[in-house]
Amino acid sequence: MLEVRNLNVSFKNQKVLQDFNLNIENGEIVGILGKNGAGKTTFFESLYRSVKFSGEVILENQHLKREQISYLETENYFYPYITGKEYLSYFKEINNSKYIELIEKFNLPLNKFVQYYSSGMQKKLALIGMLLLDKPINILDEPFNGVDFEGVHILYDIIGNLKSENKIVIVSSHIIETLFHTCDKIAILQNGQIEKIYEKSEYEQLQNFKF
C-alpha cells in the first residue's frame, strides 16, 4: 500500500497542497481530478521527490524512494539528435519480448530522430520508456494528451496490464471519460486537499461534474 500522510507543499508562501492524505492499495488505479492549478502535478512531483514537502509518503511501511517510481510527465524532454531506438536503450534492451508487441502496436519509427516525431508519437515513446523501468509505482500525468484514438485504447490496455501486475497506478486527466475507463477510484483535488473519493459505483455522480 502507498500511504500519503499530511503532505504539505508551498511555493513563495502560497500553499499548494495542504494536509493532503491518500491511501492506494497495490493493484489499484486511482484517478486524480482537479482544475488547472489545483496541485495535481505538484502532488506527482512530491512523490517523485522533485519538490520539497512536509509530511510522509510510505510504501509497504518504508519511506517511498524515487527509484520506486516510473513517472510519465505531461511534457516530455528528449535530447536533440537522438533516435527513438537510442532513447529506449537508456532504459533496457528493446528486444525484451514483453515490449516488442507494444512497440509494434505504436508503430514508431525508432530509427528516426525524436525531434521530428509528433507530440503524440513522443508521448508514446516516453510511455514505452516508462514501462521498461518496471517500477511498483506508476504516475501518468495527462497521458492521453495528444494521443490519437488508437493510442488511447492501447493506453487503456497498458494501464489494465499494470493493474494485473499488482502495480499502483496514479493517473490525471482533464478528459473525465478516460478516468471512467481506467480507474478503480477517482479522487477530487480541491483547495490543496483530497475532498472526496468516488468509487466506480458512484461515477454516475461525476457525469456532469464541475469545479
Rank of each mutant, 00 (worst) to 15 (best):
Q68I: 04
Q68K: 05
S70P: 03
Y71D: 03
Y71K: 02
Y71T: 09
Y71W: 03
L72M: 10
L72W: 11
L72H: 12
T74E: 14
E75I: 11
E75K: 14
N76C: 02
F78L: 00
F78E: 04
P80G: 11
I82T: 15
I82R: 05
T83A: 02
T83P: 09
G84A: 13
K85H: 09
K85G: 05
K85L: 12
E86S: 14
E86T: 13
E86M: 13
Y87N: 06
Y87C: 03
Y87A: 07
L88N: 12
S89F: 04
S89V: 03
Y90N: 14
F91Q: 13
F91P: 14
F91Y: 15
F91N: 10
E93K: 09
E93W: 00
I94F: 14
I94A: 09
I94V: 14
N96V: 00
S97F: 07
S97I: 10
S97E: 14
S97A: 10
K98R: 13
K98V: 06
K98F: 09
E101Y: 06
E101N: 12
E101L: 07
E101R: 12
L102Y: 02
I103T: 06
E104M: 10
E104L: 12
F106S: 02
N107C: 11
N107T: 09
L108P: 04
L108F: 12
L108V: 11
P109I: 07
L110P: 06
L110W: 14
N111P: 08
K112C: 01
F113K: 15
F113N: 15
F113C: 13
V114A: 06
V114D: 03
Q115L: 08
Q115A: 06
Q115N: 13
Y116K: 13
Y117M: 08
Y117D: 11
S118W: 00
G120Y: 03
M121I: 12
Q122K: 15
L125N: 01
A126I: 05
I128H: 01
G129H: 04
G129I: 10
G129E: 07
G129F: 02
M130N: 14
M130D: 13
L131K: 06
L131A: 08
L131S: 07
L132V: 06
L132D: 04
L132G: 05
L133P: 02
L133M: 15
D134C: 02
D134K: 01
P136K: 06
I137E: 03
I137T: 01
N138M: 09
N138Y: 00
I139G: 09
I139R: 11
L140E: 03
L140A: 01
L140T: 04
D141G: 08
D141V: 05
E142L: 08
E142P: 08
E142K: 12
E142D: 08
P143A: 07
F144K: 10
G146S: 06
G146D: 06
V147I: 15
V147Y: 01
V147G: 04
V147W: 02
D148T: 03
F149G: 11
F149R: 14
F149L: 15
E150V: 12
G151N: 02
G151D: 09
V152H: 10
H153W: 02
H153D: 08
I154C: 05
I154W: 01
L155A: 01
L155S: 05
L155T: 11
D157C: 05
I158V: 15
I158E: 01
I158S: 00
I158G: 00
I158A: 02
I159P: 07
I159T: 09
G160C: 03
L162I: 00
K163I: 00
E165H: 05
E165M: 04
